[in-house]
Write a protein that binds this DNA or RNA. Sequence first.
DNA 1: TTAAACTTGACTATTTTACTATGGTATATA
DNA 2: TATATACCATAGTAAAATAGTCAAGTTTAA
Lengths: 141, 141
Amino acid sequence: MKLTTKGRYAVMALADIAKFDKNNPISLRDISLRQGISLLYLEQIFSKLKKNEIVKSVRGSNGGYILTKSPEQIKLSNIFTAVQEEIKTVHCKKESKRGCNGKATKCITHNLWDELELHINDFFNKKNLGDLIKGKNERVL
Amino acid sequence: MKLTTKGRYAVMALADIAKFDKNNPISLRDISLRQGISLLYLEQIFSKLKKNEIVKSVRGSNGGYILTKSPEQIKLSNIFTAVQEEIKTVHCKKESKRGCNGKATKCITHNLWDELELHINDFFNKKNLGDLIKGKNERVL
DNA sequence: TTAAACTTGACTATTTTACTATGGTATATA
DNA sequence: TATATACCATAGTAAAATAGTCAAGTTTAA
Ligand code: FES
Ligand code: FES
């Protein structure tokens, strides 16, 4: 069970914007330099964040990205959904009545993995970008 | 974030033993057939479970595997540790003072991922094999 | 003595991840 | 209006991880 860079970088980059935003758009170039993330990779990630209205872009020189809402209103679950960092604990199709490995019924562990998924999503629903940039979580970027 | 088959199969197979054990060893062949898991793959997994004393083996014909403790005493975290299903939410070396991407300090998201890891491990520490085979979690294997 | 079962280590196909490459389009500012 | 600085989109790809398989045993109950 690993968190992929897509999800990690998305949160990192948005936290960077939340922290450095002085009502100006933040360029991907700056984020790339500060966070040590490939610019081209960031572009990919931000394309998704924009489509999902987590950020909006300002084109042209001195352009960049701005959060569409206050950091407190952006939940981690919103970010993860946007970049398609999926939490996948089961191998069966959840909506189907059939189980994994092609069985006719759900397997003995199905409910357990389902609970786990809820448990993890719960965490992401409770945390928001604001939590990251204030209080004891504060760090030097 | 995905749960790998190694962890899923380990729990599935042990639940199978817990359920079908009538004080007799359960053969991997039976588990393989009932759960639809490759026998050769199960052998790999059980080698680790045995080394970590989750199960003990009975050799010879009519042999198989027995749980070393009662299902209630076997926590999911024990199983996951045994088969090396690692929960890895950070990319930095935790024990080190340095951050990910070779930075001198921990990144702004480090604490968050650390909390997430605790949150997930908490779940695995609270659940045991016994929870799987009784009560409302019960399913047809 | 033989078949059923466990044991070990190496090997490999497939999939996923984590990017890079290429070739654009849009626009603020000089 | 030139142009540098941004964003945008699609395709490709090297490396790593996953999910197994294969081969060659050893052990022991019947
Ligand atoms: S995980 Fe859903 S049926 Fe096995
Ligand atoms: S996750 Fe630990 S420093 Fe970035």
